[in-house]
Computed example of a mutant assay.
Amino acid sequence: MGLSNNITAILNFIALLCSIPIIASGLWLASKPDNECVHLFRWPVVVLGFLILVISLIGFIGAYWYKEGLLALYLCFMAILITLLLVLLIFAFVVTRPDGSFWVPGRGYQEYRLDGFSNWLRDHVTSDDYWPKIRNCLAESNFCGKLNSRYVGAGAAQFFLAHITPLQSGCCKPPTICGYQYVDPTMWVNPVNPAADADCSVNS
């Protein structure tokens, strides 16, 4: 067995071993109680693990025992996988490049407008099929609770200069343009009508 085949066999054996914890992680997520974040990720993780397992197994057997047919199949699968990854990366770059962010005077964080995102991402995220799941996932992930704990007792001036994440900026507080008055990081009061359920309310 040539040196190149040895290296290919070793790399595929390592990939084969790595696929086992990936599959186990996906199965562990599948066994968890119902959770929107788990629903979004558990089966893609399992499928990814099985794909790595199958491809690395084909590559290992083909390289170790020098099975030309399996090596050809392995190279074909790898070419397809690399092409799909490149297409996915290009697509992700195109649809996420416009991020809807803008700076507000007197703020240490950026704010976000939905119309600043790409049409595909905006329509996909706000659709009735996906937005309720994403909203529930964000709520269960406690992004806003962590923000509140971090800045508990902070005054408005201190919070306005804070560096918070895009998710926290976009989901845990109303946009500055709405004119809400700061109480704490996740509680804001409408100065016009405190009981109003306006379009400027917190999205989370």
Rank of each mutant, 00 (worst) to 15 (best):
V94N: 02
C200L: 06
L57I: 14
L17G: 10
S127T: 13
K173Q: 15
G179I: 14
D197S: 07
D129Y: 03
F77N: 08
L27N: 03
S25H: 04
E140W: 07
V94A: 11
G155T: 15
P166R: 08
L70W: 00
I23R: 01
V87G: 06
G116E: 07
V192L: 01
P194V: 00
Y151N: 02
N35F: 04
R135V: 01
L57M: 10
F159P: 02
P174N: 08
V38E: 09
L17I: 13
W28H: 10
C178N: 07
V125R: 00
N136D: 13
F102S: 07
F117Y: 14
I177N: 08
P33V: 06
G106F: 00
Y74C: 00
Y66F: 10
I52C: 09
L16W: 12
N136Q: 14
V54A: 07
H163W: 01
L85S: 05
G155R: 07
D99Y: 14
R122H: 09
D197W: 11
A157R: 11
V45D: 04
V183D: 01
P174H: 07
S101F: 02
L84C: 11
G108F: 15
H163E: 13
G145P: 06
L3A: 08
M78C: 10
S19K: 08
I7H: 10
R107K: 12
N12F: 12
P174A: 10
G179L: 12
I58G: 01
T8E: 00
L71V: 12
W103C: 03
F41N: 06
I20L: 15
I10C: 15
Y130H: 11
L147P: 06
R122K: 10
C76V: 00
L85C: 09
W43Y: 15
C172K: 11
P194N: 02
L71G: 00
D199C: 03
I14Q: 06
C37R: 14
T126N: 14
F13D: 09
F93P: 00
A139P: 05
P105H: 08
I134F: 12
P44F: 11
L29W: 07
Y130F: 12
A154T: 05
Q168I: 07
L71E: 12
S101R: 15
L86M: 08
D197I: 03
V87L: 15
I14D: 05
C200W: 15
C200T: 01
W103F: 11
T176Q: 09
L114D: 04
K133F: 07
D129I: 03
I134V: 10
D99P: 06
H124K: 14
A195T: 12
Q168H: 14
N35A: 09
E36N: 12
C137G: 04
T8I: 00
V46I: 15
T83P: 01
S101C: 05
L48K: 01
G145H: 10
V38S: 03
